[in-house]
Write a protein that binds this DNA or RNA. Structure first.
Length: 285
DNA sequence: CACCATGTTCCTTG
DNA sequence: CCAAGGAACATGGT
């Protein structure tokens, strides 16, 4: 599912399909995902509005909408949570299980589906203001990153999940970035030296950029109607293996040999979430 | 049945 | 006020 690279790929997929389209109908099947926007207001703003553009910020999608006429543009914010998907379907297609919202377009329909309903499709965009710098932009600079890390007493792996530090890193790419930077996930954020901070910043950029580049070249199935659908599938289920999972060096590879030194990858739990790392390449000192 | 899961927010504690 | 830790949210896979 969705950390920054997956959301970026989804954005690129969606943009040509829905940019310029007008929303003709709105069906809300799970009001929770609109929170705190009311279904009534959601409908009022969306029905008849034109989708003039989509952008991404961290793991959020921002749909810029132009309502009927005279009204100023509004922003619709989408977040996939852990299991969310967004895709286009044909008008006649039946809705998949756990469809939360359906937007009827000129031809076809936009479906937001989310098994666990942790995601959002809402007019409340306040979450975006709290985000840290965009990791693949110039805003993510060494000085700011150094400062933010300095005051933290959390383990660096846990700190990387803090979206105010830098936006878009999730549990998978946090482990991947630390492996690439050869830094122990247990090292306290405030204890990284200048060389480590620099390596980590570069590793974050490299890992995310590579994931986007890789995802861009994979023939994806974003239809949302098949079991092993799309690149939002992680894990090691057999068969259709996307080399998406092959790309991950440590995540979900407990016990497998380290890609670099061959030592078994270790799994630990930090802040109630799994961390994967190589105990040799990422020594604590 | 038990445990695990790509994320965020809210509450509590220090 | 701020940082940090943990539960809660809801469902499915193994």
């Amino acid at each position: 599912m969705p950390e920054l690279p997956e959301v970026e790929i989804l954005l690129r997929h969606l943009r040509p399909l829905i940019q310029g389209e007008r929303i003709r109908s709105v069906e809300v099947r799970r009001t929770k995902v609109l929170t705190p926007t009311s279904p009534r207001q959601f409908r009022r703003v969306l029905v008849g509005a034109k989708i003039v553009g989509i952008t991404r910020r961290g793991k959020y999608l921002l749909f810029k909408l132009c309502p009927k006429r005279g009204h100023p543009p509004v922003t619709l914010l989408g977040h996939l949570g852990m299991t969310g998907r967004m895709f286009l379907a044909r008008t006649g297609d039946r809705l998949p299980k756990h469809t939360a919202v359906v937007l009827g377009l000129r031809r076809g329909k936009f479906i937001y589906q989310d098994t666990r309903y942790f995601g959002r499709l809402t007019l409340d965009i306040s979450a975006v203001a709290k985000l840290g710098p965009e990791p693949l932009s110039a805003d993510f600079d060494g000085a700011g990153f150094t400062q933010a890390l300095k005051r933290s007493r959390q383990a660096i792996k846990v700190k990387l999940l803090d979206q105010t530090l830098v936006a878009g890193i999730g549990n998978i790419y946090a482990s991947e970035a630390l492996f690439r930077a050869r830094i122990s996930p247990r090292l306290l954020a405030g204890r990284l030296n200048a060389a480590q901070v620099r390596r980590l910043r570069r590793a974050i950029r490299a890992v995310l950029a590579e994931a986007v580049a890789c995802g861009s070249t994979v023939p994806m199935n974003l239809g949302g109607n098949r079991k092993n659908d799309g690149f939002f599938h992680f894990g090691h289920s057999a068969g259709t293996t996307d080399f998406y999972e092959e790309r991950l060096r440590v995540y979900d590879r407990e016990g497998e040999p380290c890609w670099k030194c061959g030592a078994p990858i270790k799994r630990i739990v930090q802040a109630a979430r799994s961390t994967f790392f190589c105990p040799i390449c990422q020594r604590a000192n």
